[in-house]
Design a protein around this nucleic acid. Structure first.
Length: 425
RNA sequence: GGAGAGGUGGCUGAGUGGUUGAAAGCGGCUCCCUGCUAAGGAGUUACAGGAGGUAACUUUUGUCGAGGGUUCGAAUCCCUCCCUCUCCGCCA
């Protein structure tokens, strides 16, 4: 969430910064609301001040005299009553105003960083570096062909259980999934991250706190009866983990690694990636998350990206690092580095991790602060997948495929998986 | 699901209608003193928003789970909701 004071005092600045996202933002009406709110606040505050003084006088009068029902006293009480009526009228106005204001303001995305490449859409994303040798051959199999041949998963049977875009992992597939989760958790927790497994069902407040609500209610599954949602990413429960806290600066940065299943409705992507492990309603992910000193988040952003990258290196998967342009940034992010893994069957790089610096955007929504030099300030939050498990599996299958149809397991994963190849039984 | 208890500052925990934004303790910070098992003393220490000042700061309003209500005045009384805990039941 953006700072309300900034919107009130410098709406042009806010509009200009938001418009870096490649479309026009008009906050005229919101700006008016903030001014109106301030007006009402001052009015209420003045009335309350006077009413409070009067109450003190009445209190003293009652203690000093023994007649609690004198004419003077009743006149004073009458006066106080008038204050109360006036105040409650203003408060009602304030309530409706506040609701509107809060809703509008929480629909505004974060400011893009000035360091992010400028552009309206993903075509302006900037490739920063490329790692590894991308496998380029003809007649390569897709990961779903490989997976089905090797009996790693079963999409057909899964539609009986739920519907399309879900998967049942079987045998070595299930084993590979588990190996990847354990491998990633081990790497990160040995690297200073505290391991967490958050709940998969989370409340609306949590989703507001990280930026998924109110604007993107259509993208998550909801359990209506309980006001609970299926978590779309561990970023949400991780942000909420420290909601309403003032964190001791000595503890910063707090670094968490969380394994969680993720659930996404994928509304609006009906035609895309209908096959395979790339786009499912449910997938597993190991997420990295930092609560950082606000002055150190730029450095933190490099580190978290680096930590996510280390998994790809260890798994020997070719990838590239992309600097996401202003128009392609996620709602809460000010700057994002995507890691994209090479998928030889489609001859392209696909996102496997998105590492974002949200600055104080989520911290303000969730009220997470620290105290530096006697001043409380919002901390900065950063998140990055480290990595998405399903897409990693797809990459391992496609990049590790052998001419005989078997798949070579990356060396680092062998101790976790238990063998060096996946072969047909 | 049934019965009960409770939600107060960074934490523990007093407080049942009138200088209570809140005793006390712990913790934190600052200063002082002392030097045989590192202890003692003094002070200070919530958050958010206004107004005023370049600023240190001053002043004002709100906040005792959330939201309503009663009252001149609410942490304290009433209503609704949320959450936590204990016991019983059920269950991985």
């Amino acid at each position: 969430m953006l700072d309300q004071k900034l919107i009130r005092e410098n709406p042009t600045f806010v509009e200009e910064n938001l418009s870096l996202r490649g479309k026009v933002f008009d906050i005229t009406s919101l700006h008016k609301l903030t001014l109106k709110k301030k007006e009402i606040d001052i009015e209420i505050s003045n009335l309350q001040s006077e009413s409070k003084k009067l109450s003190k006088i009445i209190g003293q009068e009652i203690r000093n005299s023994n007649n609690s029902n004198s004419r003077d006293l009743n006149a004073l009480k009458e006066k106080g009553n008038n204050y109360r009526i006036k105040i409650s009228k203003f408060e009602e106005k304030k309530r409706t105003l506040d609701e509107k204001l809060q809703d509008e303001i929480s629909r505004l995305p974060n400011f893009p960083s000035n360091d992010a490449p400028y552009g309206e859409d993903e075509s302006k994303n900037k490739e920063i570096k490329v790692w590894g040798d991308p496998l380029r051959k003809d007649n390569l199999k897709t990961h779903w062909e490989l997976g089905e041949n090797l009996n790693l998963f079963d999409f057909t049977k899964t539609t009986k259980i739920s519907k399309s875009r879900f998967i049942t992992l079987t045998g070595n597939g299930a084993r590979l999934e588990r190996a990847l989760i354990n491998f990633m958790l081990d790497v990160h927790s040995n690297n200073g991250y505290l391991e967490l497994i958050p709940p998969a069902l989370i409340n609306s407040e949590s989703l507001k706190g990280s930026g998924q609500l109110p604007k993107f209610s259509n993208e998550s599954f909801k359990c209506d009866k309980d006001d609970l949602w299926l978590s779309p990413t561990a970023e949400v429960p991780l942000t909420a983990f420290h909601k309403d806290e003032i964190i001791d600066p000595k503890l910063l940065p707090l670094k968490y690694v969380a394994y969680s299943p993720c659930f996404r409705r994928e509304a609006g992507s009906y035609g895309r990636d209908t096959k395979g492990l790339i786009r499912l309603h449910q997938f597993n992910k190991v997420e990295l998350y930092w609560f950082s000193d606000p002055k150190k988040s730029l450095e933190a952003h490099k580190e978290i990206t680096n930590d996510a990258e280390s998994i790809l290196k260890k798994l020997d998967l070719p990838y590239r690092l992309v600097d996401i342009c202003t128009g392609d940034l996620g709602f809460s992010s000010s700057r994002t580095f995507d890691l994209e893994v090479w998928l030889p069957s489609s001859k392209c790089y696909r996102e496997i991790s998105s590492c974002s610096n949200c600055l104080d955007f989520q911290a303000r929504r969730s009220s997470i602060r620290t105290k530096i030099d006697k001043k409380t300030s919002y901390i900065h939050t950063l998140n990055g997948s480290g990595l998405a498990i399903g897409r990693t599996m797809a990459a391992i299958l496609e990049n590790g495929q052998q001419t005989d149809g078997s798949v070579k397991i990356p060396e680092a994963l062998v101790p976790y998986f238990g063998s060096t190849f996946i072969k047909t039984a």
